[in-house]
C-alpha cells in the first residue's frame, strides 16, 4: 500500500463529499428536514459551470463562480416556490417534496444535456509526484478551494451578524423571532449558502472526474452518510464525517488485513486478505453503523455551533 497516495485519495474524496454535505446539513439545521434534492442541485451547478465554460467560452474560474452564485440564488427561489408552504408542517411533507424536486432536476439535466458524459476542457496528464503520491493540479486546487470555502464559512458563521443569526435560529427559532431576527431572511441566506456549496461541490467533483446526469445518484448515499456520521445538522460534524468516510473507503480497500487475521488466528494461515472494491459502499454503511453505535447522534450536536 502506498500510504501517501491512499491518504491523498482519501483527502480528495473527503473534500468533495464534505463541501456538499456541509450545504445539506446547513439546510437541515434550520429547516429540520432531509433535502433529497440537495445533491441534484450539486449536479445542476456542475452542468451550469460546464455550460458557461465549455459552451459559452467563459473563463473557468468565472464559470465556477457564476454557477455557484446563480445556484445559490436558485436555492432561494426553490425555497420560496416549493418549501416555504411547508414551514410549519411536519418534516415528512417537505422531504417528499424534495424527493419530487430531485427527480425533476435529474431528468431535466438529462433532457437538456443528454445521457453522455461531459468533461471540462482540460487535458488529462499524469499528476505531479509529491512524497510518493500522484496529485494532479486540479486536485491541489480542489483541496485549496474547499479549505478556503470552509474557512470562509467558519468566519461567516462565527463572526458575522448573519452567521450568529443562523446559529441562533437553528437552536431556537421562536426565541430568535422574539428577539427581532427576521428568520425568513436567515432562511433565505441558508438556502443561498447551502445550494451554493452544493453547486461548488458538484462543479469540483465534475472537474476532478466527469459529469453525467446520474452523478447525483452516486453521491446521494455517501453524502447522507457523511451527514449522519457528523451529526445531522452539524456543519463541523459533516466535515469530520467526510474525513471519516474518505479515509474509511480508501484505506478500507487498500489495507491488507492478513497480519491482523493471522494475529487473531495465531498462525500464518493467510497471506492476503483485502476487502474487495465492490464492498466500498458497504464500508460507508459500516462506518455509519459503528459510529452511530458509539455515538447515537453522530459526532457533533445537531445545531449550528
Amino acid at each position: 500500500m502506498n500510504f501517501a497516495q491512499v491518504l491523498v485519495n482519501s483527502l480528495i474524496t473527503a473534500s468533495e463529499l464534505g463541501i456538499i454535505a456541509v450545504g445539506l446539513t446547513l439546510t437541515f439545521s434550520l429547516l429540520k428536514f432531509a433535502n433529497f434534492a440537495h445533491v441534484e442541485t450539486a449536479v445542476a451547478g456542475a452542468y451550469l459551470a460546464w455550460t458557461l465554460n465549455v459552451r459559452l467560452g467563459l473563463n473557468f474560474a468565472v464559470s465556477i463562480a457564476a454557477a455557484v452564485l446563480v445556484m445559490g440564488l436558485a436555492g432561494v427561489v426553490i425555497d420560496r416556490l416549493v418549501f416555504r408552504i411547508f414551514r410549519n408542517a411536519d418534516d415528512v411533507a417537505p422531504m417528499i417534496a424534495s424527493l419530487g424536486l430531485a427527480i425533476a432536476i435529474r431528468y431535466s439535466m438529462q433532457a437538456i444535456f443528454g445521457p453522455r458524459f461531459l468533461r471540462y476542457d482540460f487535458g488529462i496528464a499524469p499528476g505531479m509526484r509529491i512524497v510518493g503520491a500522484f496529485v494532479t493540479r486540479q486536485q491541489v486546487w480542489i483541496l485549496g478551494i474547499v479549505l478556503l470555502a470552509i474557512v470562509g464559512f467558519h468566519i461567516l458563521l462565527q463572526y458575522t451578524t448573519i452567521g450568529k443569526a443562523m446559529r441562533a435560529t437553528s437552536t431556537n427559532p421562536e426565541l430568535a423571532q422574539a428577539s427581532g431576527v427576521n428568520t425568513e431572511w436567515v432562511i433565505a441566506w441558508v438556502w443561498f449558502l447551502g445550494t451554493a456549496f452544493a453547486a461548488l461541490g458538484g462543479a469540483l467533483v465534475a472537474w476532478d472526474t466527469q459529469l453525467v446526469p446520474e452523478l447525483g445518484f452516486n453521491l446521494v448515499i455517501p453524502v447522507f452518510c457523511v451527514v449522519l456520521i457528523g451529526g445531522v445538522g452539524s456543519v463541523y460534524g459533516a466535515l469530520l464525517g467526510a474525513l471519516v468516510v474518505g479515509l474509511a473507503v480508501n484505506f478500507g480497500v487498500a489495507v491488507n488485513f492478513a497480519p491482523l487475521a493471522n494475529l487473531i488466528g495465531g498462525a500464518d494461515w493467510v497471506s492476503s486478505l483485502r476487502i474487495p472494491a465492490d464492498y466500498k459502499p458497504a464500508i460507508v454503511y459500516l462506518a455509519v453503523v459503528l459510529i452511530l453505535l458509539l455515538r447515537p447522534s453522530g459526532f457533533m450536536r445537531r445545531e449550528l455551533a
Binding site: 441562533a168 437552536t171 431556537n172 421562536e174 426565541l175 445545531e303 449550528l304
Partner: peptide, 8 residues
C-alpha cells in the same frame, strides 16, 4: 426554560 441560545 428554552430561554437562551445555548450554543452561543
Amino acid at each position: 426554560l428554552l430561554n437562551t441560545f445555548k450554543p452561543l
